[in-house]
Design a protein around this nucleic acid. Structure first.
Length: 431
RNA sequence: GUGUCCAUAGUUCAGUUGGUUAGAACGCCAGGUUGUGGCCCUGGAGGUCGUGGGUUCAAGUCCCACUGGACACCCCA
């Protein structure tokens, strides 16, 4: 090592997904896509950044996300841009911009994408993290809410995840929420002095939050506090009843939790969370709800919508915790080992022939000894090793070794791909 | 943004009241007779002890700062 070595490191709160774990990601991504497909949701991809004002407007100026967590920067043309901290605002922007609602009345889309929030990292929380989610735009029926919830739950079931809990609530609408807020403020105002400093601060800005406090004393004080659920307007109450009815039709068990508060301003009526006890303090696997005012807030025609977002890192954490095995099936079926130079020259071309024939194949590219090549083949979990040196090639032949049984026999090279294809099929059956 | 704990080979860790050339396991590489993996045996490579200051005759070991990590608060996926 010479000279000053400047060590580059990944940015705080970001991490690499390394070759040994990427298959886990591919596996869950494939499961997610498969479920989305069955529910007839189509993928939407939006840019990683947007105009800052889209998020400020869509998520809410007073939210933590907008207030202190966004990655915002000024580009060379003096425009303020922000790396997306969540997807819903972007999706609704795309919905409006591309007139998706004009082509069909109900638009169902899903996404799978990195998100960015500048928070202090901890278990289940990164600065760049990955979410998948879905949005159904264009309908008011609580049956759509139920479908979205069922869809979110389905992914966990498809992956064999256990011990998750579904909690639902209604956060009301612009009709009934303001009334309720006043009632709650009045109730909490009486015990203001006893509230935690955090909650005192919250009383004006976001009194609903206080119900969700982790502080023991706050919990005690709010035990009998009035809940939104008991102050819903007629429409919201009916919607919430229909939601529960729909969930029962789908045989989904749920608990009604009047204290669920969503962090984003745009929610109306339905709010839900999917919780796992196998996570740390950040125990929400997924969260979502209805946001009937967002589209018009962003300048579109009034259009109701429901959706959810779920974290992939947290999903993987739970799977790991529950020891759900994910096989890594990325390995060569055949390793071509060459004992001499002539073998090496042949192997280079032979490997390509096999690959073109659809057989995953590896060769030694480091001029290693035959023993080292065998070791490598074993490490890579190659099912077969093909050994061919000058002497075999002269006979137009090669040795084929079955790495599981250790048996070895001579193969004729003329129909090599065909023979290996057969072996590949046979071993596939027995696996 | 706040708090607590932490930072030694590729990885997981040990390192005695500060005292000579910093260790182990696993991994990696090479051998164990001719061209054959796993198990076993032998040997080898690999660390300016996160970075920068300070205290001391002497610092991986003590002090400070910075950076990074883990966890929790806030909040959220």
């Amino acid at each position: 090592m010479h000279g000053a070595v400047l060590k580059f490191k990944s940015i705080k709160g970001t991490r690499d997904i390394l070759p040994d774990e990427s298959h886990r990601w591919q596996y869950v991504e494939q499961a997610i896509r498969s479920v989305m497909h069955r529910f007839n949701y189509k993928e939407i991809r939006t840019p990683v950044f947007e105009e800052t004002s889209l998020f400020a407007r869509g998520i809410g100026e007073l939210t933590d996300i907008v207030g202190k967590e966004m990655y915002t920067f000024i580009d060379r043309s003096e425009t303020s841009l922000t790396l997306k901290p969540e997807m819903t605002a972007s999706v609704m922007r795309a919905y409006i911009q591309n007139n998706l609602g004009e082509q069909q009345p109900l638009v169902k889309v899903y996404y799978l994408s990195p998100m960015f929030r500048q928070e202090r990292p901890q278990a289940g929380r990164l600065r760049q993290f990955h979410q998948y989610g879905a949005e159904a735009t264009g309908g008011t029926s609580a049956r759509i809410d139920a479908e979205i919830i069922a869809l979110a739950m389905e992914v966990y079931e498809a992956l064999g995840i256990k011990n998750i809990e579904l909690r639902i609530n209604s956060v009301g609408c612009p009709e009934c929420r303001p009334h309720y807020k006043e009632i709650l403020k009045e109730y909490l105002g009486k015990v203001y002095d006893k509230l935690s400093p955090e909650s005192q601060r919250r009383l004006e800005q976001n009194p609903l939050r206080i119900l969700d406090s982790k502080d023991e004393k706050d919990r005690e004080l709010t035990r009998d506090a009035p809940l939104m659920l008991d102050h819903l307007c007629k429409e919201c109450a009916a919607h919430f009843n229909e939601l529960q009815d729909s969930l029962r039709l789908l045989h989904r068990t749920f608990t009604v939790d009047g204290r669920i508060v969503r962090g984003l301003d745009y929610y109306t009526k339905t709010a839900f969370e999917i919780i796992s006890s196998d996570l740390g303090s950040q125990d929400a696997l997924a969260g979502g709800g209805r946001y009937d005012k967002l589209v018009e807030e962003l300048g579109g025609k009034p259009t109701p919508s429901v959706g959810f977002a779920a974290g992939i890192e947290r999903l993987l954490m739970v799977m790991e915790h529950q020891q759900i095995a994910i096989d890594n099936d990325i390995h060569p079926d055949v390793f071509i080992a060459a004992p001499d130079d002539e073998g090496r020259r042949w192997a280079l071309a032979a490997a390509m022939t096999l690959r073109h024939a659809g057989i995953p194949c590896e060769i030694d590219l480091l001029d290693r000894s035959l023993k080292a090549q065998m070791r490598e083949a074993d490490r890579q979990h190659a099912r077969f090793v093909l050994v061919a040196g000058a002497s075999e090639l002269q006979q137009n032949a090669a040795q084929l070794k079955d790495m599981r049984t250790g048996e070895q026999r001579t193969l004729t090279l003329s129909n090599l791909p065909v023979e290996l294809k057969e072996l590949q099929r046979d071993s596939g059956k027995t696996q």
